[in-house]
Design a protein around this nucleic acid. Structure first.
Lengths: 211, 211
DNA sequence: CGGGGAAGTTACCACGGGTAAGAAACTGCC
DNA sequence: GGCAGTTTCTTACCCGTGGTAACTTCCCCG
């Protein structure tokens, strides 16, 4: 086959639908490829590079995952899921103590360190006032955290109206601490986590003083 | 002058150095223009737009302020200066109390609200692993805050080694809270500030328990 | 057997950051 | 006074990136 083709374009690959039936590239395959590219090339990974890594062309990526912001959102979901898993493993049923708070924070820091560039990709960028990019990852953590806080404070007969502020605040604290730890290898996640726990603990449990 | 010019290009403006002597456009003029454009068009302001607003061309901007990252740094300095001024005005000599902490936080929130898009411009974007963009604004606040914390903890005979973690953490908390407040007009800065102060205060002043 | 829709690919557009090359005006020197 | 060299701008461009339109091929169903 082929010697009757007198063409400018070689046989390598002709446009249109490929011969081997439907392309079997699901959304998750693209997201996996995105993670690989980001881990390899850093947070500046382009959609083209991701498409190439997934073995597809750009419009496929747009069909499967949507715009770049949607991609970031999807990856943020994955990352925040991993953070939640790590945090649960660190807590592991123990009650809410100062130590378990430190473990929680440390698990978060270590997860971010492990997925350094993914974190930077997800939290960085966009400057897009409609989406307010950095809230993407944040809200995935904020919402459950806020609910947990609210439930717990209600049971402890403490004012639950603080839950939103505190959740946003704590997530921001964690994100900035992560960014710092990522950038300065001298910072030990265990120590940092313990220090942040020290800062938060007494306020969290509602220690009161007359001032 | 001009009728001997038989040219394709009209007289409007010829390339090269303009006739009116040296262009008097300092770095600060460009930065002012940048702020105006950002306030008018939002955080997606382009260098071209800034140049146009300043009445110059793009290379002038690059000559006066450097790359886009440098521009963001310069604007971050301005913003953090304003935050410092507002914070000082809010504190105004009173000692370090729970109430003054809340005032400090509220002043920060209000400054960010006032310079909403400038804040978004400065904190948003880049994804550039070399500069770690969001640390630009952060470190301008972190460094003095860390020093203040360290001095104060030393005088109070408390462990001063926490100052870096705490400074980064608190700045992150403030930034995320700002982002949240910016995006949801229902949140009252005064209330949010008070709640965050509540969260931080007891840890800051070194409440101790045996756990 | 043929037409329509599904599923891809190519090629393109717009735009933003950043820079190279060229043009006018000043400067100093002989 | 003329003329090279320098300064200081402008024009015009390059390149990468997000995003999309148009076209091509294949499959299925009547």
């Amino acid at each position: 086959m082929g010697q009757n083709v007198a063409v400018t374009r070689p046989l390598t690959r002709r446009p249109g639908r490929p011969l081997g039936g439907q392309l079997d590239v699901s959304r998750d395959v693209v997201l996996d490829a995105a993670e690989r590219v980001i881990a390899r090339d850093g947070a500046t990974a382009s959609i083209d590079a991701i498409a190439a890594e997934a073995g597809v062309t750009k419009p496929i990526v747009y069909d499967r995952v949507g715009s770049r912001a949607d991609l970031a959102t999807a990856l943020a979901e994955r990352l925040s899921d991993r953070m939640a898993v790590a945090a649960r493993a660190a807590l592991d049923g123990r009650g809410f103590t100062r130590l378990s708070l430190a473990s929680f924070i440390e698990a978060n820091l270590r997860t971010v360190i492990e997925h350094r560039d993914l974190f930077l990709y997800v939290t960085g960028g966009s400057t897009d006032q409609t989406s307010l990019g950095r809230l993407v990852l944040a809200e995935q953590s904020v919402i459950p955290l806020s609910m947990a806080l609210k439930n717990w404070r209600q049971r402890a007969v403490l004012d639950p109206s603080v839950s939103d502020s505190w959740a946003y605040g704590m997530v921001g604290m964690l994100q900035m601490a992560s960014l710092w730890v990522i950038g300065s290898p001298s910072a030990d996640p265990r120590v940092v986590a313990d220090q942040l726990a020290e800062l938060l603990w007494y306020g969290l449990v509602g220690e009161r003083r007359t001032d």
